[in-house]
Structure formats: C-alpha cells, structure tokens
Simulated assay, not measured.
Amino acid sequence: MGALDVSKIVQGRQGWRLITCIWLHAGVVHLLINVLCLLFIGIRLEQEFGFVRIGLVYLISGFGGSLMSALFIRSSISVGASGALFGLIGSMLSELITNWSLYANKVAALLTLVFVIVVNLALGILPRVDNFAHIGGLISGFLLGFVVFIRPQFAWINQKRVAPGQETAPVKRKHKTYQYILWLAAVVLLIVGFTVAIVLLFRGYNANDHCSWCHYLSCVPTKKWKCNSSPQTCTVMQQPNTLDLTCDGTGTHHSYSIAGATQDQISQLCNSLCS
C-alpha cells in the first residue's frame, strides 16, 4: 500500500515509499492525532509564510524522516506523518534563529520551542514509535527553515515604506550577514545529507552496524515494556575464540570473546543485543 518497508525499497527499488508512507496511518486515532498537530502547528506557519513554502517544508521533512528511519529500522514497517510534523517544528526553531532581531520575546519563544521538541522526542522512546523518523524530520525541517523562512530586516522594510520627501538612513542589504551564512550552510548540509543518505540506503547500508547504541534513540526497554514484542533471533557465527551475533530484528552486530558458547548463553546474549 505504500508503507515504509526497507526490503521493498532496497531490493524492490520502490523508492516512492519514502514519500507515500507520510500519507498513511496506523488507524483512526493515529490519523486524528497527526491532523490535530498539523492544524495546531501549520495554521500559524501558513498564515505567516504561505502554503507553498509550508508544503515544501512538510514534504521534504517527511522524506528526510523516512530516510533516517530506513537507515536504522530495518525490519519494521512504518507509516505516519510525524516526521513531517517534526520538520515543521524544527523549521519554527530555525525561523526564530535566522530572524532573531525581528522578535520581541525571543528568549521565551526559544525556550518554549526547545521544551516542546524535547518532550516530543522523549515520548518517542516508547515502543512502537518511530523516533528516527521524528529525528530525521526535525533535522530536515530545521535546516529548511534557514532556507525558506528567511525574512528581511526591519530597516530595509521601513525604507520601502517611507513617504515621498521623508529622509531615512539608507539600508543597502535586505538581509543581515549571519542570515546569508546560515542560508548557505543549510543548503550545503541539505544537499550533502540527502545525497549521502539516499546512496547509503540503496546500497543496503545498515546504520546500526556503526552505532551500537543508536537503537535506544527510538525505544528504551524498561520493566514495563519491551522494545520488540516478537521473539528475538540472531544470526550466529561461532569462531574458535569468538562468537559473532547479529540481531535479525535490529541488525545490530557484536563480537564476544567466548569459546564454545552454549545455546543458553547465545540466547541470553541475543536477547541483550536485540533489546
């Protein structure tokens, strides 16, 4: 149906799933939550910047969230617009930063946005929540905000509104220097980041092989819940003095200095590796 399924994206070359998964949801409740969040966040941004720029941030952020999710979550199917919504939140943060001089209560606004982001990312460590999509969307939206939400400084705007015959101090530049620097840096990071991520994804790259702790960003197991309710299985390679295990669910790999490991030891290590 178009859900984010890494095996079909990589082996089946169905890259369109990176976009279509944004429009699918895991039930009515999931859909209603995302719609309410979109209304709460999107209305203010659309009134300020128009639907074209907001739509651009929404789509690209959703795509960025799907990319990060696909690089880390290899065995689960994912749907939802949460990555795109986090992108809008991230763009609000970068918009505040790049247009810093235009705001009055800038510190309060900054602290509020940071608090909202931290709380929502913290909720993402619950099971069955794709926090990698949230993080990828947040980063994408944050960078996009520097590009599409840049606004001219007040002095330049006021200069255009001066009545005939009235003199004002001339303002040559529409934007400040730091705004141009942030714009350029964001463009470069977006192009490089998306290019590298797409190439790695279609080469079958598993990010968990190079980051053994990153899976905790999406789910932290506790006594009250497990991050994977299905039985844990691992691919085992027994060497003379080492035991190589790869979690089939997460793709996490680790080598243990154990000679002649028993089945119970392997099961315990597998459960620990996959948790």
Rank of each mutant, 00 (worst) to 15 (best):
V236R: 02
E46S: 15
I266Q: 09
I181Y: 00
F86V: 04
L4N: 09
D130G: 05
R17Y: 09
I22L: 11
V114M: 11
L93G: 13
I258E: 10
L36V: 14
L190T: 07
S229N: 12
F146W: 02
L217D: 06
Q232D: 12
V171Q: 10
C274E: 01
T20E: 12
P127K: 03
V107R: 11
L18C: 11
V10N: 09
K106N: 04
Q47W: 12
N271I: 05
R203A: 05
T262A: 14
D5R: 14
S255I: 14
A108R: 06
L111I: 04
Q166F: 13
S230R: 13
P231K: 10
I22T: 07
S212K: 07
I198C: 08
G193N: 02
N206S: 09
W156V: 01
L56A: 12
E48F: 07
L32T: 15
K224P: 00
D244M: 12
I258M: 12
R74T: 13
V162R: 10
F154D: 10
S140M: 15
C247H: 07
G2K: 07
S218N: 15
Q265C: 06
Q153Y: 00
R173M: 03
K223I: 14
T250N: 06
T242Y: 15
A26H: 07
V147P: 06
Q159R: 08
T246P: 02
N158S: 09
Y178E: 09
L39N: 09
I60M: 14
S218C: 06
R151A: 03
H30K: 05
V6D: 10
G62N: 11
T168V: 15
T98P: 02
I43M: 10
L113C: 09
A122T: 09
I139F: 07
P127Q: 08
L88H: 02
F202G: 05
N241S: 14
Q232F: 09
M68W: 13
T246E: 15
P152H: 00
C227H: 05
S272R: 14
F146C: 01
L31R: 08
A163H: 11
S212M: 03
G27F: 02
S272Y: 12
R203K: 15
I198P: 03
P152M: 01
S255Y: 02
L110N: 01
Q268W: 04
V28R: 10
W183N: 13
V57L: 13
N120F: 15
Y180L: 06
F146N: 04
L269S: 03
V10G: 10
I266F: 13
T252V: 08
S69T: 12
G80N: 06
G55D: 00
A186Q: 10
W225T: 01
I198H: 06
C234K: 05
I33R: 09
A185W: 13
Q153N: 10
Q166H: 12
A186M: 05
P221K: 04
C211G: 01
N228T: 11
N131K: 05
N206A: 08
K176H: 03
L24Y: 09
S272F: 10
L190F: 07
P240D: 09
H253K: 14
L93D: 09
T168N: 13
G2E: 06
V188K: 03
G90P: 13
G27Y: 04
V147R: 05
A104S: 11
C219L: 04
L56G: 11
H215C: 04
A26P: 01
A163N: 14
E167F: 13
L111D: 00
T242D: 12
F146G: 04
I150G: 02
L144K: 05
T20Y: 08
A169L: 14
G55K: 01
